[in-house]
């Protein structure tokens, strides 16, 4: 393979990986922005999303929906709603009663929710890997010796489209603006007549639904699911959110894509093996944070009194 071909191949791989990270990072960032909580359970919601869509897809297999794209899209959408509601329930039961409590208590609760989720799935699945069987083929496009499957292209486009929809929602609708306003000043929003509990619940719904969509896509892409699959991507997505500037929505998308690209290029460094890719990508991220501690899009408060 020529240098150019390797480059293109890694860009494609990196974008796909990065858009998964981005989708999960968005949930971390939104929730952090609005309730200042590092929601450790978020990674497990991603995993639950994978299993939920697999269950639905298995049900659809013999119906007219099939287990090809139609079935996958329908099961992903239903999964987003179901798991989104799970996110709302988690917030209502585990986090809302602690709204005024010290943030550390909330953090411990989030860890607890995370354990409940992955242990429940472990019990149900017996801790085994589950194959994510789809009816998709391996057709794709070749550019020179670069090969990209249709699945890769569709998943990347879908992930980016979801991010764009979210961006429009956040910047154009009243509910989206209220989310941003709450992340700046919750009490003041209450004075404006914003029903903050409703908006916080909505934030959890949207963030969790996005993670569930990423879980579905990961299942389709990797072809298998495991109850602990959220762990690594959770750490990476959280990192992506911090790199972009936690609480800042375009930052989470940018951070996700950047981390994905760094990782896939990290596999190509001469003389060291691809198992060093994380060392490579995280080293660069540390350097970024040294120069930009608030993250790439994080800015100092513009304040005048």
């Amino acid at each position: 393979m020529s240098f150019q071909e390797i480059f293109i191949q890694q860009v494609v791989n990196g974008l796909l990986l990065g858009s998964f990270y981005g989708l999960v990072a968005l949930g971390y960032s939104m929730v952090y922005g609005i309730v200042k909580l590092l929601n450790f359970a978020h990674a497990d919601v991603y995993m639950v999303g994978g299993f939920c869509s697999l269950t639905l897809l298995t049900l659809f297999k013999d119906t007219f929906l099939g287990n090809s794209w139609t079935g996958i899209v329908v099961s992903m959408l239903i999964t987003m709603v179901i798991v989104g509601l799970l996110g709302v329930v988690i917030e209502r039961i585990a986090y809302k009663p602690l709204r005024e409590a010290p943030r550390l208590s909330l953090l411990i609760t989030a860890l607890g929710v995370s354990m409940i989720l992955y242990n429940s799935v472990m019990v149900v699945t017996g801790g085994e890997y589950r194959a994510y069987k789809t009816g998709l083929g391996f057709q794709g496009i070749s550019i020179g010796s670069v090969f990209v499957t249709h699945t890769q292209i569709i998943l990347t486009v879908a992930a980016v489209a979801l991010m764009l929809v979210l961006h429009l929602f956040i910047t154009k609708t009243m509910y989206g603006k209220a989310m941003r306003a709450i992340s700046m000043d919750l009490d003041c929003c209450r004075l404006m007549g914003v029903n903050c509990n409703k908006i916080i619940a909505l934030t959890f719904f949207v963030g969790t639904a996005l993670a569930a969509s990423a879980g579905t896509m990961a299942g389709v892409y990797y072809g298998s699911l495991h109850f602990f699959m959220g762990f690594v991507i959770g750490i990476k997505a959280f990192t992506a959110a911090v790199i972009g500037g936690i609480g800042i929505i375009p930052g989470a998308m940018l951070g996700g894509l950047l981390l994905g690209l760094l990782e896939s290029f990290g596999t190509q460094i001469p003389f060291i093996g691809s198992e060093w890719k994380d060392v490579f990508s995280f080293s660069i991220l540390i350097i970024i944070l040294i120069f930009k501690p608030t993250g790439l899009l994080g800015k100092k408060e513009s304040e005048r009194m």
Partner: peptide, 9 residues
């Protein structure tokens, strides 16, 4: 008190 403008909006 303190106006509490949403600074980034």
């Amino acid at each position: 008190e303190g106006r509490r403008i949403f600074k980034e909006l």
